[in-house]
């Protein structure tokens, strides 16, 4: 599967492992938060790189040992569910999360710019949506007023 990472289209080197599904032999699994919370020692011992898929009603403090996680995938069950934008900012600004922050679920081109400003650097678009033209979204609305993850200075500190 192809995703957008750091404003480029790449092959996804991670693999989603739903609850109850078999873990891969090797590679980089993305397991559910429940799975990770239950079996993180085993997972972290077996795989050098582990991602965690986080439901939209969870907060960064719900992820144990965040520093050992390589990727956090925030679920967007609907494109109108905006909780993930706040969770993304919190992960980057308050929990100093430096790994991959990925938006998954009902993710659309017209959300990419705001998601990026909230700290997301990877995006799984909703199946069927074109990736190539979606890259244009990152250059829309280049001017910004607020402090966010992309720039901690509000407009009045950089005007």
């Amino acid at each position: 599967m192809q995703i957008i990472r750091d404003r480029a289209i790449v092959d996804d080197d991670f693999v989603h492992v739903p609850d109850g599904a078999e873990l891969p032999e090797a590679g980089k699994p993305i397991v559910t938060l429940a799975h990770y919370a239950r079996a993180r020692e085993t997972l972290l011992a077996r795989y050098p790189t582990v991602g965690v898929r986080v439901p939209s009603d969870k907060l960064p403090t719900d992820i144990p040992e965040l520093a050992r996680v390589a990727l956090v995938a925030i679920e967007f069950p609907k494109f109108t569910d905006g909780r993930g934008y706040t969770v993304g900012r919190m992960l980057r600004e308050r929990h100093a999360f430096r790994g991959e922050l990925r938006a998954v679920g009902w993710v659309l081109r017209d959300q990419l710019r705001y998601l990026e400003r909230c700290g997301f650097n990877a995006f799984e678009l909703k199946p069927g949506k074109p990736l190539e033209s979606a890259l244009e979204a990152f250059d829309e609305l280049a001017g910004t007023y607020q402090a966010a993850v992309d720039d901690p200075r509000p407009i009045y500190r950089r005007r």
């Binding site: 494109f79 109108t80 569910d81 905006g82 934008y85 706040t86 900012r89 710019r113 705001y114 998601l115 400003r117 909230c118 609305l141 910004t144 007023y145 607020q146 966010a148 509000p154 407009i155 009045y156």
Partner: peptide
């Protein structure tokens, strides 16, 4: 006006409840 600018395209609050 300061609030207008702050709220315009605020990336975190475009999909409130």
């Amino acid at each position: 006006e300061i609030l207008r600018q702050w709220s315009t395209f605020h990336p975190e609050f475009a999909h409130l409840p």
